[in-house]
Amino acid sequence: MDQVIVGIDVSKSRLDVHILLGAQGPGECEAVPRDGAGIAALAERLGALGATLVGVEATGGFETVVAAGLAGAGLPVVVVNPRQIRAFAQALGRRAKTDPIDAEMIARFLAATRPEPRALPDASGRLLADLVARRRQIVSMIAAERQRQSRLTEPRVRRSILRLITALEKELNEVDREIDDQVRGSPIWQAQEDLLRSVPGIGPATARTLLADLPELGRLDRRQIASLAGLAPWTRQSGTWRGKAFIGGGRASVRTALFVAAMVGARYNPTLKAFHARLIAAGKPKMVALIAVARKLLTILNAIVRDQKPWQVA
């Protein structure tokens, strides 16, 4: 029996759907409203067709309700990166870009790569992720205002900046309180945070970023989790030529949080400090050593969550 693979391009008011009957089979196109009735009708239709894989392109948050509605109906849903879809389309020579074409490219990308569906976060998980993202935005705004304050000398402008910084700091305290209530209101999250914070170098901000933005922690092997965080090196070689390996991609918020934790861990965590010192003694550049520390820290955290055992000095 042919597999039924579905690509969905999400816009503010409409879903463009492309249904493939088999990996190389013909496609069917349709459009439905992006509302409760449209999503419910689409879920019923795809369920009746026996959809084996449904891909929804990440579109600035518009995809969340769609993915949750389809997954809630028991469909195997994956959220795909729009950059990967565009690169895939260009590789196929499809230069035109419309919503129906994007939906087709999503379906054909799924047929070619077969990504594994993963459980989507529930409502409380999405709320925590939104709160943590909002905290990052406020911290960024405070930093930007302080930069402006340091460059300006006009008293009236400086007072305006100071008032805004005060308001942002108040809002930051409020968001921190809401995040704290959210984590402490869930015994499971509280236990996970306690496990993560047992590692020297992991503070509340890093632990909660990992809870919100890396729910796969403890469920994947060390290579897969490093790739998700953007800490897996890319090998570059051609024939006898070998270039430097680079990191990139993945979840930027997780990678940033781990870098901060790695800088602290390289000074105060005995295991990471010794590891960092060995790399520096071996002649590794400081940034390369720090990346390695961040990757090792992530491996440690992944094992701790997997085994549900707190940090112990080796």
Rank of each mutant, 00 (worst) to 15 (best):
R255W: 13
I19S: 09
A277K: 11
E30L: 11
T206W: 07
N269T: 02
G249Y: 14
Y268V: 08
L15K: 08
P33G: 01
A266W: 06
Q312K: 15
R208T: 11
A58P: 07
S186V: 07
D213H: 15
A37Y: 07
A229H: 12
A257I: 09
V157L: 14
L42S: 02
A292Q: 03
P233H: 00
L172V: 03
T209C: 14
I300T: 11
R159C: 09
A292W: 04
L131S: 04
A111M: 05
R148S: 08
P270W: 09
L20Y: 00
L301F: 05
R94I: 05
A232P: 06
S124E: 11
L70A: 07
V199G: 00
D307H: 14
A266L: 03
L297K: 01
T98W: 08
G22H: 14
V199A: 10
I300K: 02
E63D: 12
L75E: 12
A37F: 06
R146M: 12
V10A: 02
F88W: 11
A277D: 12
D307A: 13
S253N: 00
A107F: 12
V32N: 04
Q237I: 02
K296E: 07
R134H: 15
L172W: 09
P200G: 04
I85F: 04
F246H: 14
C29R: 07
D213N: 12
L110C: 00
G250W: 02
V17C: 04
M1V: 09
G60A: 09
